[in-house]
Design a binder for these strands. Structure first.
Length: 708
RNA sequence: GCGCCCGUAGCUCAGCUGGAUAGAGCGACUGACUACGAAUCAGUAGGCCGGGAGUUCGAAUCUCUCCGGGCGCACCA
């Protein structure tokens, strides 16, 4: 609503400027004034023109206002301050439009005319070797929310979760299973605990036991791996005091490397263990994310990128385009390298600053594989994965890559725009891939490659102490401490979710005594997830979240439950009033509709005769109008959110709308309102707000409970 | 050494392409449940927007510089 009006005003001002001064402006600056006294939309364009025209800004503003005349949807324009052009909306008309908004319309129409854009969003991408932690939650929640925003804006979106199942992190767990003393498990003899059948049995044991005791998360395979991962990292370091120990350390590091190479090669016992463990852990990651309403379409795995020789296909193209070249001298002698972003390719012989893609022993580095993978994403590789279904969701299946897949499968890759949700620490490697694409002449692909970067989630020293970790005096002084899977230092995702649900459940039990067990549990889960998702979304991407249970477990103030509570309140109003938002909006439309037809013949006095406009103007009604106006800003916020890749904008919008509603709720009593026409108006106000809140929450992945 | 990010109220953060009196939440202190449920609302206190210089009619926002904090910069993956 507001978005359309802004665009219309911008065009109108542009036309006037072109006509009056023969100046072509690319875009007219428009902003929201700090106070409704200044109108609903303002433009400081006169300041900009003042220099070019050598004229006082106030005079220019006046000339533009005169030139504008009447613009549909606006009640008038005025010049204020040193030269602002302030626009006032036709409030009654705006309210009519806002009330009539069809939420389905959000799937914007113009996109279809240009052909639906196809985006590929990759998020989560947790190494399948340990339980997910709160840092991974931020990634997945940001990514999932962005997917929802894109879909609301009419994009076709494929959601991918990249699985690095052949990396050192998985190798570390295999090493642990093959070489460490493991927990005693019934049916496994200590002597052959490291054999393949025993490891298989161990994984199966955890699958069965964790199903039998769903409350005991420590039985879950991903939790078991969390501990093993920390243990094996201690094991690698051994006791580095004596020479014998140093030899031992070297030996263990060698075991690690050998294990990694076996996994990469495939078709052997080590690789089989890796496959078992990474698949089992992956499945639990999907379960954990599903608790938050997060689903995926496709899981490309590194093992297939290796076995299907993606790199070999990419290498040819890289060499042909000259992006990849060999150096013969310097520290990179014998390597195939690529110039770094921002640097010049130096001589062909020595290039110490270049990025190594192929090592002197002929093996490819991580960046090389990543370039190949991204060529596939844009459909530029000329090679594809095999596919088979892996995980079943309520509405669709999630597919996984495989060497020889099913004949009948959906098509992934070949997107026009990609978004990689990866933390800020990886901006260098991401830049390398973009650099390669550009160097190969794929400028369009490089331009539509977005590193959706975000800062990490760390723990406050206080939180770390609460969890029982020993922290140094040095760390205590820091604002936050980085999470480390290697050290087993962090808050696991499922633990946090459990804690949140326990806290909300206690509240719900106290409040909802009339409801049964399953209902209360459902409400508690909706609130807990709402709290968690909002918590991860309210910070803008490049601010580090210093995690603290006090903040994360809060349900008051700027939180998800605060917004959910506003929805519940509105629903209660309609329940008590024995009506529905739909009915209220229909009643409102009927009344205003009559006003429209009446006023058609006498346009000039239409506003004065519109029964509802009296409730939208005047000092005492400014807050109500502000509420309508904010409700009408949704598409504007959605557009900004997508353009900036910043879901936090929408989160803030939802909170502010809920806040303004709560204020309205305390000031005006709806059901006891005696003036029937005003009552219809107030009900319509609540109906518009609940519609917008539910929609915004939906896009944030937050459900709206029936009660709380 | 090079690159990126951050520095705004006691704490945690917003502040959109430069614009009109710098905003929230938490915490502190006052008040408001016989009401559409208080997971709420109203109010008070609290800010040389890290320091300095520059560009501009105009800077929390852009540029430079300094200070403080964080993270990257391997033939590891």
């Amino acid at each position: 609503m507001v978005l359309e009006l802004q665009k219309r005003l911008g065009e109108a001002i542009r036309a006037v400027i072109l006509k009056n001064y023969a100046l072509e402006l690319a875009n007219v600056p428009l902003e929201t004034p700090p106070d409704l006294h200044f109108g609903e939309v303002a433009s400081p364009v006169a300041f900009e023109l003042a220099r070019k025209l050598r004229k006082a800004p106030r005079l220019i503003a006046q000339e533009i206002v005169t030139g504008l005349g009447a613009v549909e949807g606006f009640a008038g324009f005025e010049v204020a301050g040193a030269g602002y052009i302030n626009a006032r909306l036709d409030r009654a008309a705006a309210a009519r439009n806002i009330a009539a908004v069809d939420t389905e319309r959000v799937r914007l129409v113009p996109r279809r005319l240009m052909g639906q854009p196809h985006a590929l969003v990759e998020h989560t991408s947790i190494n399948p070797n340990k339980a997910a932690h709160i840092g991974h939650l931020r990634n997945a929640i940001l990514g999932d929310t962005f997917v929802r925003l894109l879909r609301a804006d009419g994009y076709k979106v494929d959601v991918q979760n990249y699985i690095d199942n052949t990396g050192v992190q998985v190798a570390d767990i295999v090493v642990a299973l093959k070489h460490l003393e493991l927990d005693a498990i019934p049916g496994i003899n200590v002597r052959d605990q490291h054999t393949l059948p025993a490891i298989k049995k161990r994984i199966e044991y955890h699958e069965q036991e964790s199903r039998k005791h769903p409350d005991n998360r420590e039985l879950l395979i991903d939790y078991v791996c969390w501990r093993l991962y920390a243990q094996v990292n201690v094991w690698y370091m051994a006791l580095e005091t004596t020479e014998q120990d140093q030899a031992k350390v070297a030996e263990r590091k060698r075991i690690r490397l050998d294990t990694l190479h076996e996994i990469e090669k495939g078709n052997n016992e080590i690789a089989e263990v890796a496959e078992l463990i990474s698949t089992a852990v992956l499945r639990h990651h999907l379960e954990t994310m599903l608790r938050l309403g997060i689903e995926y379409d496709f899981l490309p795995r590194e093992s297939e990128i290796l076995h299907l020789k993606f790199w070999e296909a990419a290498r040819q193209k890289l060499e042909q385009s000259g992006v990849l070249y060999q150096v013969t001298q310097g520290k990179n002698a014998g390597c195939w390298v690529m110039k770094r972003p921002g640097s010049e390719a130096s001589t062909e012989e020595t290039d110490d600053d270049a990025k190594v893609i192929v090592r002197s022993n002929g093996t490819v580095t991580y960046v090389g594989k990543d370039i190949a993978y991204h060529l596939w994403k844009f459909g530029l590789l000329g090679r594809d994965f095999g596919y088979r279904p892996f995980f079943r969701y309520a509405g669709h299946a999630c597919w996984i890559s495989t060497e020889h897949g099913e004949a009948d499968h959906p098509h992934f890759g070949g997107a026009t725009a990609i978004y990689n949700v990866i933390d800020a620490r990886q901006s260098d490697p991401q830049a390398n891939v973009i650099q390669a694409l550009r160097g190969m002449g794929h400028a369009a692909a490089a331009d539509h490659y977005t590193h959706f970067s975000y800062e990490m989630v760390a723990l406050t020293p206080r939180c770390a102490e609460e969890l029982g970790y020993n922290i140094s005096d040095e760390d205590k002084k820091r604002p936050y401490i980085e999470i480390s899977g290697r050290k087993g230092f962090g808050v696991k995702a499922d633990d946090l979710i459990d804690k949140l649900i326990a806290a909300t459940r206690a509240e719900v039990d106290a409040r909802q005594t009339g409801r049964d067990e399953t209902e209360r549990q459902k409400i508690a889960e909706q609130i807990a997830i709402g709290a968690l998702r909002y918590f991860m979304l309210k910070y803008t991407r490049n601010s580090v979240i210093a995690f603290d249970f006090k903040d994360a477990l809060s349900f008051e103030g700027e939180t998800g439950p605060y917004i959910q509570y506003a929805v519940v309140r509105i629903r209660n109003i309609f329940r008590k009033g024995a009506t529905t938002p739909e009915a209220a909006l229909a009643g409102f439309a009927k009344q205003t509709g009559q006003q429209v037809s009446e006023s058609a013949s006498q346009r000039s006095t239409a506003a004065a005769h519109d029964g509802f406009s009296q409730y939208l103007s005047g000092e005492e009604n400014e807050d109500i109008w502000a509420l309508w106006l904010r409700a009408g800003r949704f598409s504007l916020v959605l557009e900004q959110s997508i353009a900036a890749s910043e879901p936090a904008f929408l989160a803030k919008h939802a909170f502010q709308l809920a806040q303004e509603f709560n204020n309205f709720y305390h000031k005006h009593r709806i059901l006891t309102e005696e003036d029937p026409e005003r009552k219809i108006f107030l009900l319509a106000t609540a109906a518009v707000v609940v519609r917008e809140l539910v929609q915004a929450l939906n896009l944030l992945g937050i459900e709206s409970p029936e009660a709380m």
